[in-house]
Structures are given as structure tokens and as C-alpha cells.
């Protein structure tokens, strides 16, 4: 059996191999995403993402959970959740994020001649549908695959929007309000007074 684990034999070996697989920390490739003149990036400070990356993540997350009569991912601060976790429990995905965002930006340039954020809403949707079904330019996408990258950002967007506000997303309990769930839960008392913005 030629297995990955055969290579390691020492103390802490499994942890090292994992760090290697994840490409270590997010050091290095900062500022690699070119998104052109798209107005102001979402307000920092950012821990892992560059401001341009943050703007792109925000745009993708808004496609995943769009605003309608309830707030979407942007208003709920999902990008803040993702940035914070990429410096925490989700650190092992930081390099995949960085690469995936770069591949996505390159894909949009190659196919539309402009950045993702500058595409129309239906165009953005089609780009992401292509990633989800693995149909993206092979010469651009390496590690992560389009499907893997989309899966990550989809899951993390859901976590940021529907998870506990303590992690940086779900601002003003946006999703709990949408679902009609009281929070914090105090018996017999609705905890949602009128709230500004």
C-alpha cells in the first residue's frame, strides 16, 4: 500500500503533514487579485484577506445568499466571518481561498474581460454555476478545483450567515430574525426590538 501516511513516523507527524497539505499559513501571495477600479472595498481591518479579496468574497457570498426582503450575506457581514475564521479554525483553507479567488478573477477576465464584481447579476450567477458543476477553464484552475473552491465558499457563507453572531457574521441576528427564532432566548420575551440598520 503506497499511502501518504507511510512517509511519516515521528512525533507530531500527522499534524505536520496536514500543515503541509494546507500549504501552511496565508503568508506570501498578498495583493495578487486584480479586480480593477470597483470602488471602495468593504471596510477593514482584515486579518487574512486583502481588501480586494474581501470585496470579491463579499460579492460571491451575496450571490450565495442574496438580499431580498431580508438581509443578504453582504449586510450580514459574512465576509467578516470568513476572514476571521481563515485566521482561526479554518486556517487550513487560507491558501486555497487565495488561489481560488485568483483563479476566479482570472476566469472572469478571460471570459468577460472584466472582474467578477463588474459582471451583471445573471452573469455572476452563471460563472458560479459553472464552478459548482466543475466547468471552468482547466488552464486557470489548479488547486483548488473549481468545485472544491465553490464548495468551501458556499459552506462558509452559510456558516457566517446562519451561525452564531459571535463569530463575526449574522450581524444583528439577521438570519435568526428571518427564521423567526428568538435570540438570545429568554422565555416569554421577544428579544428583537426595532433596530437601526
Amino acid at each position: 500500500m503506497a499511502t501518504e501516511t507511510k512517509r511519516v513516523a515521528s512525533r507530531r507527524a500527522c499534524l505536520k503533514i496536514l500543515a503541509a497539505a494546507a500549504g501552511g499559513t496565508a503568508a506570501g501571495v498578498g495583493g495578487a487579485v486584480s479586480v480593477g477600479r470597483l470602488g471602495r472595498a468593504p471596510e477593514g481591518p482584515w486579518r487574512v484577506l486583502t481588501p480586494d479579496e474581501a470585496r470579491l468574497v463579499e460579492a460571491v457570498s451575496e450571490q450565495i445568499i442574496p438580499a431580498d426582503r431580508d438581509p443578504g450575506a453582504k449586510e450580514a457581514g459574512v465576509v467578516r466571518y470568513i476572514d476571521k475564521q481563515l485566521d482561526g479554525p479554518l486556517k487550513r483553507f487560507a491558501e486555497k481561498y487565495r488561489n481560488g479567488l485568483r483563479f476566479l478573477a482570472q476566469t472572469c477576465q478571460a471570459q468577460h474581460g472584466k472582474p467578477f464584481e463588474a459582471l451583471s447579476w445573471p452573469e455572476q450567477t452563471r460563472v458560479l454555476q459553472a464552478l459548482e458543476s466543475g466547468k471552468a477553464p482547466k488552464e486557470i484552475w489548479a488547486d483548488p478545483s473549481p468545485r472544491e473552491f465553490f464548495g468551501l465558499i458556499r459552506d462558509h457563507t452559510m456558516q457566517g450567515f446562519y451561525g452564531s453572531p459571535r463569530h463575526g457574521g449574522n450581524k444583528n441576528y439577521a438570519s435568526y430574525k428571518m427564521l423567526g427564532l428568538e435570540y438570545p432566548r429568554v422565555i416569554g420575551q421577544n428579544r428583537y426590538p426595532e433596530q437601526a440598520g
Binding site: D68, L128, R154, Y176
Partner: peptide, 22 residues
């Protein structure tokens, strides 16, 4: 709970976007 429910869908349902949120 809300996040766990994001994966509770009939087969073939959209996994994201406006319909998923609805």
C-alpha cells in the same frame, strides 16, 4: 439548528442562491 438546516433539502434542490434562501 439554522446552519444544519441549510443542508436539509429535497434531492435536486438548489444548494444556494435566492431559492435556497427562500
Amino acid at each position: 439548528l439554522p446552519y444544519a438546516f441549510t443542508n436539509t433539502r429535497p434531492p435536486g434542490s438548489p444548494r444556494w442562491g435566492a431559492a435556497h434562501k427562500e
